[in-house]
């Protein structure tokens, strides 16, 4: 009796989640997968085929953008990690009481504004007539206006900024749980700053590092506004390609194929990342 009642309540609890997964995640993706194999013969006839995927490999612009997006996302993720680690270390290990909460809040505050607003903020700072350019001129470091926007570096700055919180949080969580004696033992047994970091702190923080990297990588790979607005005339981003196919070219079939490829790329890279670092998904997300 009791077990059937608990089974029922479990089912009821699971229902919204299952519905969400099936209706909003699984079905749209299956539909997209199906559309990606469509080939439009004329206005109203469609056959199945691999033409959309062939287009991807034969049109160098697609796969070049694809590779570029992947490489830049990896680099952004790495840079975010390098910047977030000291911040997380400070919050988790050095800050106390109110300062700790305040610092955490400071990381969170930018996320009260939307990605668009954050991106515009950076554009105001970086543009030729912007704040940084004005300061550089005022300090005599530049003779004329300096354009810092519309290039890949600007895109990476924007993406790192967007990803920072998602790296800091898991790092703080793992570093918080670390016995401070481990670090002291590391020094006590003859280690210097570098060896203690490499041999003790980083291995300990690895689950946080990997989960942060996965989240930031996914966010970066899938971001749209920041690369579009801050990127230069050569800074193509793969999501832009997908958007263009769906919205401006009305080519849903091609867009779907590109979407599927992006999904495959992100899955493969995450899988590789887990393999290389010897972590598994359960440990990292748990």
């Amino acid at each position: 009796m009791r077990s059937s009642a608990s089974k029922l309540s479990l089912c009821l609890l699971m229902t919204p989640f299952v519905l969400w997964i099936v209706l909003l995640v699984l079905l749209p993706h299956l539909q997209m997968l199906r559309v990606s194999f469509h080939v439009r013969e004329s206005w109203d006839t469609v056959t199945l085929g691999l033409e959309q995927y062939q287009n991807f490999f034969s049109e160098s612009y697609y796969w070049r953008t694809f590779v570029r997006t992947g490489v830049m996302s990896l680099f952004t993720t790495f840079l975010t990690l390098v910047i977030a680690f000291p911040i997380a270390w400070y919050i988790a290990r050095l800050a106390r009481g109110r300062a700790k909460g305040f610092l955490f809040l400071a990381c969170l505050i930018p996320f009260w504004a939307s990605e668009l607003v954050r991106t515009y903020g950076w554009m105001i700072l970086l543009r030729e007539s912007g704040l940084f350019s004005t300061w550089l001129q005022a300090l005599g470091l530049a003779d004329g206006p300096v354009e810092m926007l519309y290039n890949d570096a600007a895109v990476i700055i924007g993406l790192v900024y967007n990803g920072l919180l998602f790296m800091v949080v898991p790092l703080v969580t793992t570093l918080d749980g670390m016995d401070k004696n481990l670090v002291e033992a590391g020094y006590d047994l003859g280690g210097n700053h570098w060896t203690v970091l490499r041999e003790i702190i980083v291995p300990w923080a690895m689950p946080g590092v990997v989960s942060g990297c996965i989240v930031v990588f996914m966010l970066t790979l899938g971001s749209y506004l920041t690369p579009i607005l801050m990127g230069g005339k050569d800074s193509a981003w793969f999501t832009e390609q997908i958007f263009t196919q769906f919205i401006t070219r009305f080519n849903w079939e091609q867009g779907a194929a590109l979407g599927v490829l992006l999904l495959v790329l992100s899955s493969v890279i995450v899988w590789l990342g887990l393999r290389v670092t010897g972590q598994n998904l359960r440990k990292v997300m748990g």
């Binding site: 049109e59 612009y61 953008t65 005339k233 050569d234 193509a236 263009t244 401006t248 070219r249 009305f250």
Partner: peptide, 19 residues
């Protein structure tokens, strides 16, 4: 007319990709 936008799309892609 139909088909024109596909042709134009390729041109626009190539312009964006050019260095």
């Amino acid at each position: 007319p139909p088909g024109l936008e596909a042709m134009e799309g390729q041109v626009l892609d190539r312009v964006q990709a050019a260095n």
